[in-house]
């Protein structure tokens, strides 16, 4: 018994060590970025680099936020990401629901075809999208950029939601229908609350896809709808790299996503385990 207990503890300890190593590997780049954002300009470019600043300063944050276009770009990023997330959910939920509930051959082909669109290089549809948005008179708007970002997130959103819907037994909806609900009513009042964790996972995925996207933002925006990834990249010019300000803005830009993830943490864990108990 003692031997079993000892083995169990050893296994647990090894697992914790492994987790710690993985955490450090994932977390160190961000921690380093965060620490660099508090260094003086000279220390930020020191060779060899230091990890912890000798002198802590906020001047990089002041410089980054004072740069023209930074605040509008942050607003544009939020608007575009929220809109793209809404578009993805509004389109992915009914699509995934129909595919999982009707289980027709054409539905399976549709889901596969949706995934195939992910294999098309983004740059290949960049130029046609520029043309399309200009023809529609919506170029350089967050609306147009959100539509473009939806083309990235929608296929995987459909797949994600489909896997979550698969985990919901048909009997749940049957019961709702017996209580007088229509199919849409059952979806809205019964199924969606049950898959709220899956919705959260999908929303975060769609939000992040838009939040971090660079190429479409580069091609489709100019003056009015430029998003923060472009502004962050602008700190590196052909004439120098402003590490301090760049890391400061990157740290600021990471904050909403971290807060959003923390706020939805419980739903995310529930969502991640939802597919695992499919029965």
């Amino acid at each position: 018994m003692n031997g079993i207990e000892t083995r169990r503890r050893s296994t647990k300890a090894i697992l914790y060590v492994l987790l710690a190593v993985i955490l450090v590997l994932y977390g160190f780049p961000f921690v380093y970025l965060l620490l660099t954002s508090f260094k003086t300009p000279s220390e930020a470019i020191a060779v060899p680099p230091s990890v912890v600043p000798d002198v802590w300063t906020l001047e990089n944050y002041v410089a980054a936020l004072a740069k023209e276009g930074v605040v509008p770009a942050l607003v544009n990023s939020v608007v575009t990401a929220v809109l793209s997330t809404l578009f993805s959910l509004v389109l992915a939920v009914p699509a995934a629901y129909a595919v999982t509930r009707y289980r027709t051959p054409s539905g399976r082909v549709f889901v596969l075809a949706a995934l195939v669109t992910r294999m098309v290089p983004t740059i290949a549809i960049g130029a046609p999208l520029v043309e399309t948005m200009r023809a529609l008179g919506i170029s350089d708007t967050s609306f147009a950029l959100a539509i473009a970002h939806t083309t990235i997130s929608l296929p995987l959103s459909i797949w994600l939601m489909a896997s979550f819907f698969e985990a919901i037994p048909d009997e749940l909806e049957e019961a709702a229908k017996m209580d007088g609900a229509s199919r849409l009513g059952a979806l809205w009042r019964v199924v969606l609350p049950v898959v709220s964790g899956g919705l959260a996972v999908t929303a975060i995925f769609a939000f992040l896809a838009s939040w971090n996207e660079f190429l479409f933002a580069l091609l489709l925006t100019s003056v009015r709808a430029q998003t923060t990834p472009i502004v962050i990249a602008n700190f590196q010019t052909q004439f120098g790299l402003d590490w301090g300000a760049m890391t400061a803005l990157a740290a600021v830009y990471s904050l909403p996503v971290i807060l959003l993830t923390l706020a939805l943490q419980r739903h995310i864990v529930a969502g991640l385990t939802l597919g695992a108990v499919k029965g």
Binding site: P72, A73, N76, T141, S142, R224, A225, Q226
Partner: peptide, 9 residues
């Protein structure tokens, strides 16, 4: 907001 973006018209 998305109609024009935050950068102004």
């Amino acid at each position: 907001l998305s109609g024009c973006g935050a950068g102004g018209d």
